[in-house]
Design a protein around this nucleic acid. Structure first.
Lengths: 105, 105
DNA sequence: TCTTCATATCCACATTTATAGATATATTGA
DNA sequence: TCAATATATCTATAAATGTGGATATGAAGA
């Protein structure tokens, strides 16, 4: 299984995790929660940005920046469906990171 | 086994890991390397600050700050022996962190 | 087409972090 | 006691990051 190989990747991942709000976001994504604004089907996977905005109590641009950090680190996936951007955990990447911490840090 | 329980502890730990020089320091501590300035016994555990200063090519105060970050996060232990401060990996803490990433992030 | 809405990006500002030189503290050895 | 050494702390500065308001983009629906 491919690890978080380069030092640069690792730094990016740990940076993404070194913020309380972003840890909360990963937690929220784990629970998956209610669908966006009660407008979309309950069986959608992922959460849209406005869900996170409500849940975290921060401005829309802040959510967008945090999601960008998590996506750049590869820990979260983004997918546009209609006018919403859905975010979901990249479980394989999170598992590789855990493996890296266990074996190589 | 106790995990990295509080969010605050986790943030501190990830912040400590989100820097290339600090990752290198953990690597150097794993190898343990030569003893300080060839002045102390070869079977000493840990590395002193001046070893790290040489290995990383940064100023003394920078080493001190980085070690402070790693110690505050609990990932590294410091022990003063003579006029040298010896640093070593806190393996149980690193293992708990790996467990936390695997199970709770 | 026009309006509304969701989100990314831009901009400005505040806070945090990294860095290095200078100084202080403490230990060792002469 | 004094000089040398190792390291922490102080100070200043530069760089990175977090934040939120404003604007731009793009999709949906009337």
């Amino acid at each position: 299984m491919k690890k978080y190989g380069s030092e640069e990747e690792r730094v990016l991942a740990f940076k993404a995790l070194s913020d309380a709000k972003r840890l909360q976001i990963l937690e929220l994504l784990k629970a998956r929660g209610e669908s966006c604004c009660s407008l979309v089907a309950r069986d959608e996977t992922g959460l849209c940005a406005c869900d996170l905005e409500d849940a975290l109590g921060v401005s829309q641009s802040v959510v967008s920046h945090h999601m960008d950090a998590l996506c750049r680190a590869g820990l979260v996936l983004r997918e546009k469906r209609g006018r919403w951007m859905y975010y979901s955990r990249n479980e394989p990447a999170l598992a590789r990171l855990a493996e890296t911490v266990a074996k190589e840090i």
